[in-house]
Simulated scan of single mutants.
Amino acid sequence: MAGKTTPRIYGMLAAAATAFALLLTGGAPSTAANPAQEKTINYVNLGDSYSAGFGSGSIISPFPGCFQGDGPTHVTQIAALPGVVLTADGACAGATAQQVATMAGALNSQLAQADLVTLSLGGNNLPFGDTIAACSTLGSPAVCEQMLAAAWEELDGVQAAVHATLAQIDSQTDATILVLGYPRLFTTNNGDQPLVTASTARAMNKVNDALNRSIRSATNGTSAKFVPVLGPFNNHGINADNSWMYYNTGNLADPFNVHPNTTGYLNGYFPASRNHIHLNQLG
């Protein structure tokens, strides 16, 4: 997912997919195994800003039209596991499920050789970032209600779009496919907060939970496995005493806002993912 400015800043993802494919054609990461290792595990990462590491490090553009965070995340930790080689990281902030499918199509050769694929998708199909902006303290209560109602109505469409993308990726690879869910953005037991009121936060968390259920259902009929992260992030949302979510109170337009911070990626997303990665069964 991403903030309100995402459509303007992070568009052109179809062109980005082509650019990335051409970049890899000229210099893909080496897949040569360490002599001490018995096998190499080829790893491909796809998805939106939660897979692109927004909230950790600084914003970089690894190829034209795509933006990622360059700090430590679950992706860097997975890539550091024994034998694992990250052959392609095509996650881009702002990507919809359809745009993730476009990127996957551009990375067909990498997916064909992959043993492990991780991705997050679906949040930008609501779009959740615009809903957060409308429901913030700077937004309009009336528009917020309209956006929340629209989000509930769009969940079936989100599920269909996510399923179509997962079915496509499933047809491209025999890899283990891990679909990462989203954490609840807000911890509500501390009352109102700078971004939203406690009641609005609860309403948005309910939409967030429904989104996760839709994504889980979208894996049906595919080999993809849904990886929930609600447990690890419990009581670590925005306004928590120990928040694992990035939120810059001095800049509501900060594109890292409402994304996991480095701790969230390392203590939330990575352990959840690692529990589903069986290295002895990959490669």
Rank of each mutant, 00 (worst) to 15 (best):
W152M: 08
Q77K: 13
G55W: 01
G11Y: 07
L111G: 00
Q77D: 15
G283A: 01
N42S: 06
Y10H: 13
A15Q: 15
N190D: 10
F270T: 04
A210N: 04
E145L: 10
L116T: 03
A133I: 11
F233L: 00
I60L: 12
G122H: 05
L266Y: 03
A167I: 03
T187F: 11
G26P: 08
F233W: 07
L81K: 04
L121T: 14
S243K: 05
L180V: 14
D130E: 15
A97D: 06
D254Y: 06
N212K: 02
A272N: 06
T131E: 06
A201I: 05
Q110V: 00
E38C: 07
P183F: 05
N124P: 05
A272E: 04
Q168I: 01
G250R: 07
A14D: 14
A112K: 12
A93E: 07
N212M: 07
R184I: 05
G71F: 12
G129R: 10
F270H: 03
T188R: 09
R184L: 12
T102R: 11
Y43A: 00
N220K: 13
G181Q: 08
S109N: 06
R202Y: 10
P260Q: 01
M103H: 06
N190I: 06
P29D: 02
A167K: 10
M147D: 14
A253I: 10
N212V: 00
H276K: 14
P35I: 08
L111P: 03
R202H: 12
L252W: 14
A198D: 14
Q113H: 06
G250M: 03
L46G: 12
I132F: 12
D241C: 09
E38W: 04
N45Y: 00
I41G: 00
G123A: 04
F226K: 12
N42M: 00
N280T: 13
G94W: 11
Q110A: 02
F128K: 10
T200R: 07
V207A: 10
G26R: 12
G122K: 09
G237R: 00
N125L: 06
F270D: 03
P29E: 00
C66H: 11
A167T: 09
D192P: 04
V84C: 02
T31C: 00
A160H: 04
N190P: 07
P232E: 13
T176Y: 07
S199A: 15
N212P: 05
I238F: 15
A36I: 06
A134Y: 02
D209F: 08
P194C: 07
N239M: 03
N239E: 02
G268R: 01
A14P: 11
A91F: 10
T137H: 13
T219R: 11
L81M: 13
I60N: 13
W152Q: 15
T262Y: 00
S223E: 12
A133K: 13
N234K: 15
N220E: 15
N190R: 15
N108S: 15
N205M: 11
N124W: 05
G47V: 01
V117R: 07
K4V: 15
A112L: 02
A93L: 01
I59M: 14
A272V: 08
D89S: 11
F20Y: 15
N212R: 00
G3K: 09
A149P: 04
R184H: 12
L46K: 09
A114W: 01
Q99I: 12
T96C: 11
N251E: 13
